[in-house]
């Protein structure tokens, strides 16, 4: 028997649950109980999390209890993110409520999940090996990630690599891909069939929209994989796609800088990150055109 998904819940029932006790969703590898009386949150969940497993409301252990609720309503309606009743962020406009939930969930994982080493990166898999792309905001990481997952790569995460220090494997954490500003239209044109959630306008990052995870990536969310490539991407206007080998010691340092909690793990964390780098081919990558970038990634040799 297949587990029920969020799609099995009619939208009006979902709205009612979200506004009261919340819904319990399996968002691999975590379970989250989500509450929100704000319609745009329900709309985003129904659109982007339709295929995620819905767990019983009673008796299910949830890693994170989160909510996006109304803050003040006047002069401008605001919303607030809550985790276990805490309100760690300043309120945002109600139109940003779904994006706020996504950002809040990221914060929950990076702030509280210390059994794994989390690294700010886009993460994909092909032929059993994982591509890790750590990069600061504005580097084109998510756009490249979206283009690759639409061209045969499996999405593990658009936002964070979760490294299990005991096994050296990267755990999938497939959630909607966050795209900003022009990237939204670029990806829509590249994949007219791709499904997007609500647009959040005038955020601190500009306009933000989330793209639904491909069904195959979600179906394989229980399949971790070994690291294979560590690539530092950078969007550079008018630049041809260029892949340049990078020193592993440099790659290690940049990986560590992008880790949220490597320091928490002490020596085992150092060893785990070192093993990840040792297993991976390291490159810098600059690009301006996605089609060229996809070709380069398609030709990446499989590491030993």
């Amino acid at each position: 028997m297949t587990a029920p998904t969020l799609a099995s819940v009619p939208r009006d029932v979902l709205r009612r649950h979200l506004g009261s006790e919340g819904v319990c969703l399996r968002i691999p590898p975590f379970t989250a109980r989500i509450r929100s009386p704000i319609p745009i949150v329900g709309e985003g969940l129904a659109t982007l999390y339709a295929e995620y497993e819905l767990l019983p409301s009673d008796g299910t252990f949830a890693d994170f209890h989160v909510a996006v609720v109304y803050g003040r309503r006047f002069p401008k309606a605001l919303c607030v993110f809550e985790m276990d009743g805490l309100r760690p962020f300043t309120p945002l406009a109600v139109g940003e409520a779904f994006a706020f939930l996504e950002w809040g969930l990221n914060w929950c994982v990076t702030g509280y999940c210390h059994t794994l080493i989390s690294i700010h990166a886009a993460v994909l898999e092909r032929h059993g090996r994982v591509l890790i792309m750590p990069a600061p905001p504005g580097s084109g990481k998510s756009t490249l990630c979206a283009a690759l997952l639409l061209n045969g790569w499996r999405l593990l995460s658009d936002e964070m690599a979760l490294l299990d220090p005991r096994t050296g494997l990267i755990l999938p954490a497939p959630r909607p891909v966050s795209l900003k500003n022009q990237s939204i239209e670029i990806i829509r044109q590249l994949a007219p069939h791709a499904i997007f959630g609500p647009l959040a306008r005038d955020t601190m990052k500009g306009t933000v929209a989330h793209m639904r995870v491909p069904s195959d990536s979600l179906a394989r969310a229980a399949e971790p994989a070994l690291p294979g490539w560590l690539i530092f991407p950078r969007y550079l206007p008018e630049s041809p796609a260029r892949l340049v080998a990078r020193a592993k010691s440099e790659g290690f340092m940049q990986l560590a800088e992008n880790s949220f909690n490597q320091n928490v793990h002490g020596r085992p964390g150092f060893e785990a990150l070192s093993d990840l780098v040792a297993r991976s081919d390291c490159y810098d990558f600059t690009y301006s055109r996605l089609a060229e970038a996809i070709e380069v990634f398609d030709r990446l040799p499989l590491p030993p």
Binding site: A247, E250, G266, R267
Partner: peptide, 23 residues
């Protein structure tokens, strides 16, 4: 200390303070 060597350089971890040095 924990040290990891690669042909292009090394990284040293100092467990006493969590610092990393590229060598």
């Amino acid at each position: 200390f924990a040290l990891r060597n690669w042909p292009d350089g090394s990284v040293l971890f100092d467990e006493a303070n969590g610092q990393l040095q590229r060598l």
